[in-house]
């Protein structure tokens, strides 16, 4: 299998879908000629032409609005928000229009559309290039929400998203675009080349939406994570020697509760991780589900490690980012409890 960065994997998924389905269109700011500021669509306009892959005005609301119109008409748009931080002008279109079209028209109109967006921090992007808005989307009925943690998953999940009959929010952890990242920011760049999940089939394959992946099997505690935090969890487990089971959620909505419950019932302990701010974050939802389903199996209160409830800072990035030290402390704390 060829080795791929997450950027290449995402590009490959779009390339395959452009090839397979003539109704697929890709557009967004700087997405066409240039190929996207993160290069995810590089070469696609040249290959498929301007009518399939094109640049747009800087108006996220218009980008998603156009995508909804096209999707309703029968096309398969996959659009890019340049950063998740810039999706807010589109939130009206996403949450009030795309999400409800099927329901309010009794299935007369539907919205099979994907909205891709780079998410999360770790690149010194400051408060407007670092946010993790996943909980804003999971709070909206009618949306599916995906966040891969590696190239293999990214490609398979994006193809599934592009074939899904409903609108899918596809969050791409930008810190993982070029390599895995467990929180060591000392400057050593590790690529995907030497990571087992950095290999992916060149052709078409799917990873179903709603299926989590157990990225490490363990007995003593369950860690629920997604995106960059999967790698942070691995680093913390490695450093602590704790026998934790790491569940990479891959899809936040629909959520793979079955896998989560089986694990927590087995370990009796659960730590929830995300980079997003703590209050009303997706972790709150996970903890609620876990306690409802596993209360009598829990041996300690469920703990979460998250970003602080503050705007993402520029210079103090690594004091903000919930790195492996904080995760390790949480693991030790829950095992002592």
């Amino acid at each position: 299998m060829p080795s791929m960065t997450m950027i290449e994997a995402i590009r490959s998924a779009m390339d395959i879908m452009l090839e397979r389905d003539k109704k697929t269109v890709i557009f967004g700011e700087d997405v066409g000629y240039f190929g996207g500021v993160f290069r995810c669509t590089a070469g696609l306009q040249e290959k498929y032409g301007q009518e399939r892959v094109f640049d747009t005005p800087i108006n996220e609301s218009a980008i998603v609005g156009m995508a909804i119109g096209m999707a309703a008409h029968g096309m398969r748009p996959c659009v890019e928000m340049q950063f998740a931080d810039y999706m807010f002008p589109a939130f009206d279109q996403i949450s009030q229009e795309a999400a409800r079209l099927r329901h309010r028209s009794n299935g007369d109109f539907t919205c099979p559309m994907v909205v891709r967006m780079p998410t999360g921090g770790g690149i010194f992007g400051g408060q407007t290039h670092s946010q993790s808005p996943e909980a804003l989307f999971t709070h909206v009925a009618g949306l599916k929400v995906v966040q891969p943690s590696n190239p293999f998953d990214a490609k398979g999940l994006l193809i599934s998203a592009m074939e899904d009959p409903d609108p899918v929010i596809f969050l791409e952890p930008k810190r993982l675009y070029n390599g895995p990242f467990g929180g060591d920011h000392s400057g050593k760049a590790i690529g995907w080349k030497h990571h087992p999940m950095g290999e992916a089939p060149a052709g078409y394959y799917k990873i179903p939406l709603g299926k989590a992946n157990i990225s490490r099997h363990g007995e003593d505690v369950t860690i629920l994570a997604y995106g960059t935090m999967v790698h942070v969890a691995e680093a913390a487990v490695l450093a602590s020697g704790i026998d934790a089971e790491i569940i990479d959620l891959r899809t936040l909505l629909p959520l793979d509760l079955k896998t989560i419950i089986a694990s927590v019932v087995k370990t009796g302990r659960c730590v929830v991780l995300h980079e997003a701010t703590r209050t009303s974050g997706f972790g709150a939802e996970l903890i609620a589900e876990v306690q409802e389903a596993c209360f009598y199996h829990l041996e300690a209160p469920v703990v979460r490690v998250t970003g602080w409830d503050a705007p993402y800072p520029h210079a103090q990035e690594w004091d903000y980012f919930p790195g492996p030290d904080r995760v390790q402390r949480a693991l030790e704390q829950i095992l002592e409890a």
Binding site: F124, G125, G126, Q127, P313, H314, A315, Q316
Partner: peptide, 10 residues
């Protein structure tokens, strides 16, 4: 020396 205490992007 940053009046914004490092919070904002350069």
């Amino acid at each position: 020396m940053d009046p914004l205490k490092g919070r904002q992007l350069p």
